Structure formats: structure tokens, C-alpha cells
Simulated assay, not measured.
Amino acid sequence: MSTPEKACRSDELSMEVVDLIGDVVARFYADYEEAAGEYRLTGAQARLLNLLSLEPLPMRKIAHRLKCEPSNVTGIVDRLEARGLVERRPDRADRRVKLAAATEEGLRVARDLREGLRFAHAPLAGLSDEERLSLRDLLRRMLAA
């Protein structure tokens, strides 16, 4: 087998993997939107709440992680705060900075949302522990690259 043929096959395989990852992401977001709707949240609100369930964050960092403008984050936090799911608090390290943090109710909703994701759970349940560990490790390697 010549090198160009091998490279072509590798490219085809890479493109198939990229397409499959895209399909997984699309299905994940669709499921997330549906689960969020059950709590009268938008997908963006649910993703932000999930992010804050891990740790309180300043608005700028939230915007960076969600890949959106800080002004958009402010509006989303305002709506979540009005529902009692998020609160603003001063950063202990720099009192000039405000952190957005999930409230107890916000933590409960974020947990329920994650547990209610059918797409995320059903396919993974069909994999062995070893397969899930392998998948996790491969995804971590991809994200670290």
C-alpha cells in the first residue's frame, strides 16, 4: 500500500470520527434543550447553571467557557437570579469582582437536569466499565491536545 492511499484512508477515518462527534454533540444539545424545557429554562440557562454547579465563577470566565459575550452572560444570570437559581456574591480574593454561584435550588435543578439526560445515560449504560473508562480517557486526550 502506498503512502498516499494510507493517508487518504486515514483522512476518511478522521472525517468519519469528526462526523460522529458532531452527531453526538447535536444529540446531546437536543436532549439538553428538551431537559431544560422541563424546568422552563433555555439551553443556555441550563448550561450556565450546570457550569455554576461545579464552582462559582466571574462573568468573564463564564462568557469564555460558554463562548459568548459577557453582556449575554449578564442577562442569563439575571434571569436565573430572578428565579432563585443563581446568586451574585463578592469574590473573597478580590471584592471588586462579583461571582455568579448556584443556590441550593440551582444545585438541585442542575443535578436533576444531568440525571434526566436520556441521550447521555442510555448509550453509556450499554458500555462496560472498561469501555467507559477508555472513552473517557480518549476524550480527555482529545481535549488536552
Rank of each mutant, 00 (worst) to 15 (best):
S71I: 05
E12L: 14
Q45T: 07
L52E: 05
K61Q: 14
D137V: 06
K67A: 05
L117N: 07
M15R: 13
A145G: 15
A35S: 13
N72P: 00
F119H: 08
P70W: 05
L139A: 14
L80M: 06
L80S: 02
T103A: 03
G84C: 08
V77F: 06
E81K: 11
A93R: 14
V86P: 06
Q45C: 01
H121D: 07
R83W: 02
R96F: 11
A26Q: 02
Y39W: 15
L143N: 06
S10N: 09
R141T: 09
M59W: 04
A93Y: 08
G22L: 09
S134R: 13
E33G: 04
V86W: 06
G22Y: 05
I62L: 12
P58V: 02
K61A: 14
V24S: 05
A125G: 04
A36M: 07
E55A: 15
R47Q: 12
H64L: 13
R95S: 14
M59I: 15
L99Q: 04
R47A: 14
A30S: 09
A63R: 06
R92D: 15
M142W: 11
S10E: 10
R9T: 11
D94Y: 01
R96Y: 07
L48M: 15
A36H: 05
Q45M: 05
D112L: 15
S53W: 04
I21T: 09
I62E: 10
L133G: 07
P123V: 07
E81G: 03
E55T: 08
V97Y: 08
V97G: 07
G43K: 08
S134N: 09
D11K: 11
L52Q: 03
L117F: 09
R40M: 12
E12N: 07
A122I: 15
F119T: 01
D31G: 04
P123I: 06
L85N: 02
S2W: 03
M15D: 13
R27H: 06
A82Y: 00
D78F: 10
T3S: 05
V109C: 12
R118E: 12
L66M: 12
S10D: 08
E115S: 11
A35G: 05
A93C: 03
L138Y: 07
R96D: 13
V86L: 08
Y32Q: 12
S128V: 09
N72E: 12
E55L: 12
R95I: 09
L66K: 04
M59D: 10
S128L: 03
A46H: 01
R132Q: 11
L41F: 00
L20M: 13
A36S: 12
G37C: 03
A145P: 00
V73D: 10
G106Y: 11
V25Y: 08
V17D: 01
A30F: 00
P90H: 02
D78L: 07
E130D: 08
Q45W: 02
E104H: 11
R89S: 04
L13V: 13
H121G: 08
M1P: 04
R136W: 13
V17F: 09
S14Y: 12
A122W: 10
L139E: 02
L99S: 06
R27E: 10
L133A: 14
R136E: 10
A145R: 12
L57A: 14
